[in-house]
Design a protein around this nucleic acid. Structure first.
Length: 332
DNA sequence: AACCCGCTCAACCGCTCCCCT
DNA sequence: CAGGGGAGCGGTTGAGCGGGT
């Protein structure tokens, strides 16, 4: 079965011969590749355009870095994967001279096994302890990667048997505190709240990055990442009974975490506790309030600026896509 | 020497997104 | 606005290689 782009042509498949490489290289360097579908025709190759593109990107491109991955590159892959997941093309952009295919293969053949051997889930980067897997308690893992003056906070949350549900109903549980930011994620994490030293109104998420949570539907793990300097992070989840539970981590928890070894620029805090609050979603929606055993959290929605939240979520906030990510200097 | 097995990595496949008409 | 085609992406496959038996 050939590609649609070249179904009329007789195409060759499989490994490229040195002659084919030479033809493609010669053609691209002199003519460029405005249209990959026409490249094989003009280059005199019995390949489809897609195959030519792949060969160029993964092998013939002059700016490719050859050889095995360095330790530094490996660490970058792990760190960025923690945040982006299997977005190989995005990860490869942080590694000059490396292709997405190369990164993907390296991940699958080396890093994945290394993480597993260290007791880490390669998808979530969380600990793979049997106690945790068997636990019926909701867990929240918050890890922090130090990056110069910024911090990347990665939050993942797990609630066994929790349904993947629409999350808009929890808007009424937003705290009435200007310095508390709140966003929702379309999974078991209903909302997360971040307390920063900055005032949200005068400082529109200056260092805040949100990217789509990675979701493992089977295990009900959801994670999302932000860049900010919070003094506290709070997670709000739904469980299987549509009840809401909260857990929070204070910045002090991070500060108390020593770096384990030189070069390991990361600390991790895992919060595993029973529900600190249990209240049905409907109940909260009805009253506009949620309870939290922690005294600093009042969920009075009466003064909450939903307009502000909506505008932040739909414009400033949600528009932070990977292009924004690409602009960041990743100076790990 | 022959066979088996596991690993690596180049290449393919199928899907989605985006742009053009 | 809809449809078609191209580009790009992530998952998967399979050839080739090396080590072990």
């Amino acid at each position: 079965m050939g590609h649609r782009c070249c179904s009329k042509q007789k195409i060759k498949r499989g490994l490229w011969s040195p002659e084919e490489d030479e033809k493609l290289l010669k053609y691209i360097t002199t003519h460029g590749h405005k249209s990959w579908s026409s490249v094989p025709k003009f280059a005199g190759l019995q390949r489809c355009g897609k195959s030519c593109r792949l060969r160029w990107i993964n092998y013939l491109r002059p700016d490719l870095k050859r050889g095995s991955f360095t330790d530094e590159e490996e660490q970058i892959i792990i760190d960025v994967h923690r945040i982006l997941g299997n977005r190989w093309a995005q990860i490869a952009k942080h590694l000059p001279g490396r292709t997405d295919n190369e990164v993907k293969n390296f991940w699958n053949s080396c890093i994945k096994k290394k993480l597993i051997s260290q007791g880490l889930d390669p998808q979530t980067h969380n600990l793979l302890s049997s106690r945790r897997r068997n636990s019926s308690a909701c867990t929240t893992t918050i890890s922090k990667i130090y990056q110069n003056s910024n911090s990347i906070i990665n939050i993942s949350s797990q609630c066994p048997n929790a349904p993947i549900i629409e999350t808009s109903q929890t808007f009424s549980s937003l705290p009435n505190k200007a310095q508390l930011n709140n966003f929702q994620t379309p999974s078991t994490i209903v909302s997360s709240q971040y307390q920063t030293s900055n005032n949200i109104h005068s400082n529109k998420f200056p260092e805040l990055l949100y990217n789509e949570p990675s979701i493992e539907k089977d295990s009900n793990i959801c994670s999302s990442s932000i860049i900010m300097n919070p003094s506290a992070v709070r997670i709000c989840n739904n469980d299987e009974n549509n009840n809401i539970w909260f857990s929070s981590v204070d910045a002090e928890d991070f500060r108390n975490q020593p770096l384990e070894e030189e070069g390991l620029l990361q600390s991790q805090v895992q919060v595993e506790k029973d529900k600190t609050c249990e209240k049905s979603v409907d109940e909260i929606r009805e009253t506009g309030k949620g309870n939290n055993l922690e005294t600093d959290a009042s969920f009075d929605s009466s003064n909450f600026d939903f307009g502000l939240l909506e505008s932040l979520l739909t414009s400033e906030f949600m528009s932070h896509d990977m292009n924004y990510m690409d602009e960041l200097a990743w100076n790990f």
